[in-house]
Amino acid sequence: MISVKKLTKTYRIARPQEGRFAALRSLVRPQYTVCRAVDGIDFDIQDGEVVGYIGQNGAGKSTTIKMLSGILVPDSGSVEVDGLTPHVDRKAHLQNIGVVFGQKTSLWWDVPVIDSLRILKEMYRIGEGQFRKNLEMFCGLLDLDSFLGQPVRQLSLGQRVRADLAAALMHDPQILFLDEPTIGVDVVAKERLREFILEINRERKVTVLLTTHDMVDMEKLVDRVIVINAGSILYDGGIQGLRERYGRQRRMELEFEGEPPEISLPGVQAGKQKDGKFVVTFAQGQYAVDEILSHIRQGGVPIRDITIQNADIEQIVRDIYREGGRE
């Protein structure tokens, strides 16, 4: 369905110049820094998959989405979506996909939601029957009724994203690109958006590619994760695999009867947290739990309580970002 091969995109960014007549020189002969936003990435996405695309700010997520939706032309490599090359067969391709940016609305700012939907209906040449059916369904699932008559600028963020999602799906696209759809939305609204996305994926077999910084999104929505860092793919596979490959940190929470003892094992981090808990983290293969515990007991302070956890997904992702994927 979606096939990306050796995809590369570089931006030229004008570099501010220093010294005499800097402004004049940058006008006459601007100097550029070349920034490689996406650097030779490959992936395939099958029909009906929900794929999470994660990476730090500036890792190249939005640039990839823009190339997949056809508004950016790649420097090299190929993109194929449903047999079409997005930036070449632009119009046919745009009929096939829906795109939602959590950061900005694609609806007309000062036009009531229902009117925007009606205008889109004509733009995408949606039949009246299909339009009514979809409108009814989305109103039910996303609870649009209460604000259909209001212009977008009056909507709350949660309402706006819901309206945008409905608008992106009115023409029955088979592929949905979501760029940080849950950003800034409250917990309840987030949950509703997630349920909706799952429902659409289940009922309509819509393929979903979403970028997010919300790890709950990842755990609840996604079958597969692609992690991108500085333009390159670090990991592509299931969430479970991500845990196995990167989740090597274990975490131990301890409570002591007195002052916590000094811990001096190489590669082990230990310290008191704000809430008074004493936390020890160590690498899975390096030490056994027992080794750590016996080391602590040598200090002679009785342990009152103990919990041991594997690293959660957020911790794993944090580690990947920090290390840039170094094994």
């Binding site: 745009l94 795109v99 900005k104 694609s106």
Partner: peptide
């Protein structure tokens, strides 16, 4: 920065 969204319409 919303001009992207205008480019995403099939017209």
């Amino acid at each position: 920065g919303r001009i992207d969204t205008d480019l995403l319409r099939p017209r």
